[in-house]
Amino acid sequence: MMLTGMHVAIIGGDARQLEVIRKLTELDAKLSLVGFDQLAHNFTGATKMYIDEIDFSDIDAIILPVHGTNLEGKIDTVFSNEKIFITEDLLLKTPKHCVIYSGISNSYLDELIKKVNRKYVQLFERDDVAIYNSIPTAEGTIMMVIQHTDFTIHGSRIAVLGLGRVGMTVARTFAALGAKVKVGARRSEHLARITEMGLEPFPLHDLEKEVRDIDVCINTIPTMIVTASVISKMPAHTLIIDLASKPGGTDFRYAEKRGIKALLAPGLPGVVAPKTAGQIIANVLSQLLFYDLTKRKGNA
């Protein structure tokens, strides 16, 4: 599986993008790197450039950072002070077959992609990426619980909210460490799966009752679920870790008022294991790029 002849622009990002660059250069793709001018390392086959130096009419794919852009189209990069913006004019210069990749999206990117009519892939919407990423997420959650409590995980009472791709891994991991784990879910098949996993299930409409005796609450649901009413029923020592994407699903204002420690922790893979998180993205990206290249050659 080689990417010979494919021209990819990698624009901004953090340490995870270095694994993407490494993987794609190994596969013989031609890379233009924007927002990496302060990176000491050089990659064979990859050229550091400023965004206005790129001929976008020759670009087959654009890889944005995991977080995409902000709501003004600005891209963050830890390897440059260059101010980088993704605009409609810029994307309209690309060939119609050009595919844009990012981890997640927002209203600015959604509207922009609609205007320019290009294929857009949100990697973190894919089951494979989310499941692979749940592994460093669970490890990072363990780290946070150890840092912010004065008791062992073994024997502690932990409530995990949601049995999605992250919730399942987190619940299983804490149970393996000897915690008494109960999992809240809405769907009957999820409650059945929780029972099959040897954990204690409860319907989320019983959440206020179920938090009365817990030590740690780990939320994975990206809607307001850990409300002031729920927090008011928790023991004073409870630690809340919210793994949902910003702004999370916790009333952080009330938690602070009540004196309960509540931490929003999205993007843990990039914090605790950037190399592994980058390899996960790189492996899936290389497969998708190869598919696009093969498909384009087949249509040629």
Rank of each mutant, 00 (worst) to 15 (best):
N81V: 06
S232N: 14
A29R: 01
A300W: 06
R186T: 09
G278V: 08
K114F: 15
V129M: 07
A262N: 00
R212G: 08
R187F: 11
E82S: 13
K261C: 09
M168E: 12
M49K: 15
V166N: 07
D55T: 10
K83D: 10
D76Y: 13
E26L: 11
P274C: 04
L293C: 05
I11D: 00
Y120H: 06
K48P: 12
N106W: 02
H205S: 12
G13H: 03
K275P: 00
E88V: 02
K180Q: 15
L263E: 02
D58Q: 14
L90G: 08
V226A: 09
N133Q: 15
A228S: 15
S80H: 11
Y254P: 03
G73Y: 11
P247D: 11
D52F: 01
D292R: 07
M168C: 12
A265N: 01
K23P: 08
R296H: 13
K74M: 14
S156Y: 08
K93N: 09
K209L: 08
P222I: 13
N283F: 00
A185W: 01
A179Y: 00
A61H: 08
H67S: 11
L264K: 01
L243T: 09
V8I: 15
V271S: 09
E53W: 03
T227P: 05
T87F: 03
A228M: 01
L239R: 05
A300H: 12
G68L: 10
A138Y: 02
I194R: 00
I280E: 07
Q122A: 12
A130C: 03
K295S: 11
E256S: 13
I260Q: 00
R258A: 15
K275T: 13
K297L: 11
D150T: 14
L109P: 02
E210C: 04
G12T: 04
L239K: 09
A61E: 06
N133M: 15
T169W: 07
M1R: 14
Y254E: 09
L39H: 13
E139S: 11
A185K: 02
R118M: 07
G298P: 05
G35E: 07
A236S: 12
L91M: 11
I86S: 05
A29F: 12
F151V: 15
A300F: 05
S107I: 10
